[in-house]
Design a protein around this nucleic acid. Structure first.
Lengths: 243, 243
DNA sequence: GAGTAGAGATTGTTCAACAATCCTGCAAGA
DNA sequence: TCTTGCAGGATTGTTGAACAATCTCTACTC
């Protein structure tokens, strides 16, 4: 993207400018509440704040250096994502999900993700091959992390893979919903003692889904994904009961 | 839009808001923020605040008689429902949805609602008959409203029918998602000139779905619903283009 | 041991002031 | 004529303090 390459391609240049503008906007356009929410989100998804933990307002206003009003705004953003729950006059807590939530979450994941892949069959125009690039990157990340035994990182990469899978549908609402579902799923992972068993088997299955997508075998990919999700759900339920 | 026309619009809008405010004040509500959100929600869903309209904080603090913080809290509640959008440092606006949003919303509605009905086939324990009672109430409401020509009320009752339909799945997350989808759909209805054509044909089809559910013909009900949603989407798109 | 009253701590709500940002209009320069 | 830069006024973003409502825990009574 060199600037010196000034062809008479006005459209391309405008697109480039728009891309830069969007990049800058993403960096700069965030309120204090969103920044505070970012920090809390990472603390929760990475396990520093365990399910059941209470978040004290006074303590966090000091740590995050924001006012109570702004902090409460951040709480609301995360509540919307399902990463926090309010208990009236008692405060906000990291939710403790149970087996019923596993079933609920996976039911939604199955119907949404599988439908996205099946929908690719009738998509017009046909899915460009470069749209699959982020998926391959996620796979490489997961495989590299697995070699090092970093199972939490494997889980993260696997989730990003599925988020990119959903992204193929080009639906902002679907992306929103998926973001929330996967965030809640991370909460569930934190109560599991053996992350290796939970994540390792699915690296290869994700790659086979990816390969089928590359070959435009969308229906077969959807079938593999369906089985994948059923097995993954069962694995989580087993881990829960063995706890 | 001329200045004078805009001024008239503003006056009418304020008068309307005051009317609703007096209306809601009769009920005792828990918090001022909830009460303010109620007023705004009705103003938006009933069309007094049109898509694209900006909600001025100063103006609304005076009309609703709450502080700016409380008002902003109400804004957050409605943003979560999809009835408002924030633009940083520019304020809150009633979202303007377009044909692309229609397609996006209906795609989600189809996959979710149809899956709920198909899922009833394998449900254990079998769906108790009394779970269908709310659906019949909604149908009666819609039919009564149609006789009086209250087409907006017909639309409301139809939406409640579909919300109750989703409720049969017993999934709190699905209920959340549906609430938001239907709220966005209401925004779309406001740009339609002929509400009768939009809502009337679907009363009978909702009843036929209901009847099939009573007879435990879940797969057939799902098929009818699928066609229903495809036709409804097409009707909305046609109305959009004829605008 | 059961129940209750009250103190202390935490959250819920509101307000007013200040800081940061956007929009508008106008003037200078190419 | 068109662009660019700059005030200024208007609007939103953020804060801290104050007070009300509610919960939790302790101590006391019976």
């Amino acid at each position: 993207m060199s600037i010196s390459q000034r062809s008479d391609d006005d459209e391309g240049r405008q697109a480039w400018l728009r891309g830069v503008a969007a990049d800058v906007a993403r960096q700069d356009r965030s309120s204090s509440a969103e920044r505070a929410a970012d920090i809390l989100r990472r603390s929760i998804t990475e396990g520093a704040l365990r399910p059941g933990a209470q978040l004290s307002e006074i303590e966090l206003t000091e740590v995050l250096d924001v006012s109570r009003n702004t902090l409460r705004e951040a709480f609301r953003l995360l509540t919307h994502e399902g990463l926090l729950v309010y208990k009236l006059h008692r405060g906000v807590f990291v939710p403790e999900l149970d087996e019923h939530d596993v079933v609920d979450l996976y039911r939604l994941r199955r119907v949404l993700e599988v439908d996205v892949l099946r929908g690719l069959t009738h998509r017009t125009p046909e899915l460009p091959g470069e749209r699959l690039k982020p998926l391959e990157d996620d796979l490489l990340d997961a495989e590299a992390a697995a070699l090092d035994g970093r199972w939490a990182a494997v889980g993260t990469a696997n989730m990003r893979f599925h988020r990119h899978l959903i992204g193929l549908a080009d639906s902002s609402r679907l992306d929103d919903i998926t973001g929330r579902l996967l965030a809640e799923l991370r909460l569930l992972f934190h109560v599991i003692a053996t992350p290796q068993e939970l994540h390792e088997p699915y690296i290869a299955r994700n790659r086979s889904i990816y390969q089928l997508l590359c070959d435009r075998q969308y229906e077969q990919a959807a079938d593999v994904l369906q089985d994948y999700l059923l097995d993954s759900e069962q694995g989580l339920l087993d881990a829960f009961r063995a706890r």
